[in-house]
């Protein structure tokens, strides 16, 4: 399957934070949810993909092209939604359109108008009166008006109410009707991903832990609960990390079937949530 984004062996160091030999791929035609705690390197990765930040070494390739030679060709095909406000506060959405439209070769005014109507965005009110959700929708309308093939979103649902988040998911489902379209979005509200993400990319502490099909995660990983007497030096090796309390233990395994073979009916095996995986992975490192 074709990759839209390929980061290979990226090194980047900042004061107090470092990404080492970081590689990820994003598959074309699917939604990839990008998860990890605060400071795990999600925003840095997105900035590297957008060329807002330059790696110390390694390669970034988008649509199979690199930024040195094809910066404009690449960005022509990307739509972006950021966590922070990127609009001129005193301008209206109409003015923003006047600024952004000429930047794209394939801007489609009809499409823009259609999404503005659909999202119920006011064209003549200044951007500072827009709520966070409206700004997110405005970014999406712009992304869709130039028929972006790759939509990159940094925490699009942070600070939005549940109804708004549900609406966004409907929009994304609508967008994915086009099989050439790819969505890559970071979030730490992992329940947003249950209904939309095809792949999950998990980073922790500047390190790529995995990229997997969502259903594979549920097949491979499991939360295991049992009594403390089941644990010894050997059995503890089966888990990524273990939370022990007076009443028993709860642990995460990355090999569900093996654990079932070892412990059989003596433990309870449950489907893990992404939060479980994030929590236990962090604990185990």
């Amino acid at each position: 399957m074709e990759n839209v984004i390929e980061l290979q062996h990226i090194h980047k160091s900042f004061k107090g934070f470092e990404i080492k030999d970081f590689s990820i791929n994003v598959k074309k035609g699917f939604v990839t949810g990008f998860i990890g705690g605060n400071g795990a390197g999600k925003s840095t990765t997105i900035k590297l993909i957008m060329n807002l930040l330059k790696q110390d070494s390694g390669t970034v390739s988008v649509f199979g092209m690199d930024y040195k030679k094809h910066e404009k060709d690449i960005k022509e095909r990307i739509g972006f939604v950021y966590d922070e406000n990127i609009f001129y506060e005193n301008l209206t959405l109409k003015d923003m359109k006047r600024i952004i439209k000429p930047a794209y070769k394939n801007w489609d005014d009809t499409a823009f108008q259609r999404y503005v109507n659909e999202f119920e965005l006011p064209l003549n009110k200044s951007m500072k009166t827009f709520s966070k959700g409206m700004k997110m929708k405005a970014s999406l309308a712009i992304a869709l008006a130039h028929h972006a093939e790759l939509i990159i979103m940094d925490e699009p649902t942070a600070g939005l109410d549940p109804i708004f988040r549900r609406e966004l998911l409907n929009i994304l489902h609508e967008l994915m009707q086009n099989e050439d379209r790819t969505i890559f979005f970071s979030t730490h509200i992992t329940t947003d991903l249950d209904r939309i993400a095809d792949y999950i990319t998990f980073v922790h502490n500047g390190e790529h832990i995995f990229t997997k099909e969502f259903y594979k995660i549920e097949e491979e990983y499991a939360i295991v609960k049992g009594t403390l007497d089941l644990l010894d030096r050997e059995t503890e090796q089966e888990f990524i990390s273990i939370r022990k309390t007076n009443t028993g233990f709860e642990a995460l395994t990355a090999d569900k079937n093996r654990v079932i073979n070892i412990f059989g009916d003596t433990v309870i095996v449950e489907k893990p949530t992404l939060e479980d995986i994030m929590y236990y992975t962090k604990k185990g490192r």
């Binding site: 957008m50 807002l52 910066e71 960005k75 022509e76 990127i86 952004i100 930047a103 794209y104």
Partner: peptide
């Protein structure tokens, strides 16, 4: 951030 995300060098 906006300008550098648009197709400009």
């Amino acid at each position: 951030i906006l300008l550098n995300s648009l197709p400009y060098t």
